[in-house]
Nucleic acid binder design. Structure first.
Length: 311
DNA sequence: CGGCAGGAGCCCA
DNA sequence: TGGGCTCCTGCC
């Protein structure tokens, strides 16, 4: 079960406000505000934000709310999404941390960012989100996704605020390429349409991939136009219960180059070839074990913090 | 002010 | 293996 110390629970949140690129909260503000020990990893969850004393997230067809001082209480509109599900309260975090404490670096990061956690995302939303994430940055990804929600999602009124659910695959499939492009997707429109079409027509059933092995589920995702190894690993880790997945983006590549050169090889650059990605991925998953994805989150978060990134 | 690099990558020639 | 793709931000 999730660790608790009195009223304190350790969770992960993306670190910014809804529709507001200014006044980003830092970790300290979050700690005070939620009365919980939190760390931000805005690179896994793009659509969480704070208004007043509550945090709101877009989770597929629901808007979810988490209020300060009520760490275990998560409400969803419409109902159906639980704290247990979203915050991964079923993970044996102590055992997982023990497993991934393979070296002093990761062991140190576990103590340094004690609130950092994986969250469980809606699979379709997760895939669409990371299809928007290629060759861009987090504020831009958020802008695209919020725009898609507003154009193709359904409005939900909560606490006097209007939110929009994440669009269904059907809604995105029915949208014209021009309409999708108006959300700032650029060349990504083609991949979004391709994925939406496969899901809407029942040829790609992400839910069923939860029961498949990591290799099987990954192979299926890679068949989708626009999905490469990095996006596949993100979807597997964040939404399909494959905690051994270890997405390697430029930040993780830098972390591996700087701290695991014996794995990484001195000749590699930030940009990995397909072959290098597969080799590295296999080795690092073997190294950290079946919950390697947790180690990945700590390394990613740390690299971003060290670079002074706030989102 | 303009120009350029870079950002949770991937496809294609 | 290299080039291109959209578009915005930060920096010089």
């Amino acid at each position: 079960m999730q660790e608790q110390r009195g009223a304190v629970i350790y969770l992960t949140f993306s670190g910014d406000k809804f529709n507001n690129t200014r006044n980003w909260l830092d970790d300290v503000t979050l700690l005070q505000h939620l009365n919980a020990e939190l760390s931000i990893n805005s690179g896994q969850e793009f659509l969480w934000g704070q208004i007043g004393d509550a945090w709101y997230g877009i989770h597929g067809g629901s808007i979810i709310r988490f209020k300060a001082g009520e760490p275990l209480k998560l409400e969803s509109f419409p109902q159906g999404v639980s704290a247990q599900e979203v915050f991964r309260l079923g993970d044996d975090i102590g055992a997982i941390f023990e497993e991934i404490s393979r070296d002093s670096l990761v062991k140190g990061l576990l103590g340094r960012y004690p609130g950092l956690r994986l969250m469980r995302q809606d699979p379709e939303q997760c895939l669409f989100s990371f299809l928007c994430a290629s060759n861009t940055n987090i504020p831009m990804i958020r802008r695209m996704l919020h725009s898609l929600c507003k154009r193709f999602g359904s409005p939900v009124e909560i606490d006097g605020h209007r939110f929009y659910t994440f669009p269904s695959a059907g809604a995105l499939d029915r949208a014209s390429e021009a309409d999708l492009g108006a959300s700032g997707l650029g060349y990504r429109v083609k991949a979004m349409k391709a994925a939406a079409r496969e899901m809407a027509r029942g040829r790609l059933d992400l839910e069923s991939l939860k029961k498949a092995s990591y290799d099987e589920a990954r192979a299926r995702l890679l068949e989708v136009y626009g999905v490469g190894p990095k996006i596949a690993d993100c979807v597997l880790l964040f939404s399909l219960e494959k905690l051994e997945a270890f997405p390697i983006d430029v930040w993780i590549a830098r972390a591996l180059a700087g701290h695991y050169e014996w794995l990484y090889g001195k000749k590699m650059s930030d940009k990995l070839t397909a072959r290098q990605y597969e080799d590295l991925s296999n080795e690092i998953r073997h190294y950290f074990g079946r919950h390697a994805g947790y180690a990945q989150q700590y390394l990613y978060y740390h690299m971003r913090q060290a670079a002074g990134k706030r989102w």
